[in-house]
Design a protein around this nucleic acid. Structure first.
Length: 298
DNA sequence: GGCCAGGCTATGG
DNA sequence: CCATAGCATGGC
């Protein structure tokens, strides 16, 4: 006679990470990562196959994770809680636009995401709004991710591996509403799964070398490559230029000038914003997207 | 219903 | 090198 099995309990661990000038909500919803959801004051997500929830309290980020763990270095790495943030901000150029962008959202941070999830997500990002990218990513995870359970029977899924997606058909991917991006994602998954591009090895390369390797993948152009370089590999000189940032650069630094090619924008960005240009870029992106509040503008 | 979205690829100057 | 069309889909 067998006793009724006890409910599956996934023991959950808790930690408090001290932070300063860290706007958790703005950071998790700023278009770097696409899986975080807010409910009951907690941000819920998945990092390295582990259920996580986070919330901001005065001076700290409170975190819970399951399965339980004593080592929280993976979370500190993801959230980048140990960087010298004041030094980064101090390295920004002191022009009016930059000051306004920083003032509009002090505490916006860059995450350090897992390369495959980040790269694949941005392959899907082309010509899509952030809300739609979230939908595509959610559909992919729902269909092809692995199930994990958090406390209280919470069920969620991992981001599917390159191997898993390479085993799908393009039509399987298209069913997740990827549109013309489906063959791009499939092709990139296949090349990554076969080791034609070794994502792990890129962490040891310099920024330009890593970019060159990423650009060999289908659906990966300069902008998508720079997003992965910045948001997953931590190359802070990478400067993704999307429609919003291009608009920001044009309006704030190239007012009423013609013949501004992509080449010139990248040259200017590298020179003007320096080694933490990618960080500055994220502030400009957020500043433009949230309507330049406090910077006036129509 | 039209415009546009964290762009890329292919093609033609 | 630069410019442009075409692309699937859906939010607003």
């Amino acid at each position: 006679m067998k006793a009724v099995a006890p409910p599956t309990v996934n023991p959950c661990a808790r930690v408090v990470l001290p932070v300063e000038d860290y706007d958790l909500g703005a950071t998790l919803s700023s278009g770097q990562a696409f899986r975080w959801t807010l409910a009951d004051g907690w941000w819920q997500g998945v990092i390295s196959g582990r259920w996580v929830r986070l919330r901001a309290l005065p001076g700290v980020i409170e975190a819970e994770a399951a399965p339980a763990t004593l080592d929280w270095s993976w979370l500190e790495e993801y959230l980048q809680t140990r960087i010298d943030f004041p030094a980064v901000v101090a390295s920004f150029p002191g022009d009016e636009a930059m000051l306004a962008a920083v003032a509009s959202c002090r505490g916006l941070r860059l995450l350090r995401q897992e390369p495959w999830e980040c790269l694949a997500s941005f392959v899907l990002s082309s010509n899509k709004q952030i809300v739609q990218i979230r939908q595509m990513v959610a559909a992919l995870c729902e269909r092809f991710g692995e199930t994990i359970t958090g406390p209280d029977g919470v069920i969620l899924r991992t981001f599917p591996s390159a191997e898993r997606l390479a085993d799908c058909s393009v039509e399987d991917l298209r069913a997740c509403k990827l549109g013309y991006r489906a063959p791009y994602l499939w092709g990139t998954a296949r090349k990554v799964a076969h080791g034609e591009v070794n994502l792990r090895a890129l962490a040891e390369a310099d920024c330009a070398e890593a970019r060159e390797a990423l650009l060999t993948l289908p659906g990966v152009g300069r902008k998508v490559a720079d997003c992965a370089l910045l948001f997953a590999y931590g190359f802070q000189e990478a400067f993704p230029v999307d429609v919003w940032v291009e608009r920001a650069l044009m309006e704030l630094y190239f007012k009423r000038k013609r013949n501004v090619t992509p080449r010139r924008l990248h040259e200017f960005s590298a020179r003007h914003f320096g080694p933490n240009g990618g960080y500055a870029q994220q502030y400009l992106f957020h500043y433009m997207r949230t309507g330049m509040t406090r910077g006036k503008a129509a």
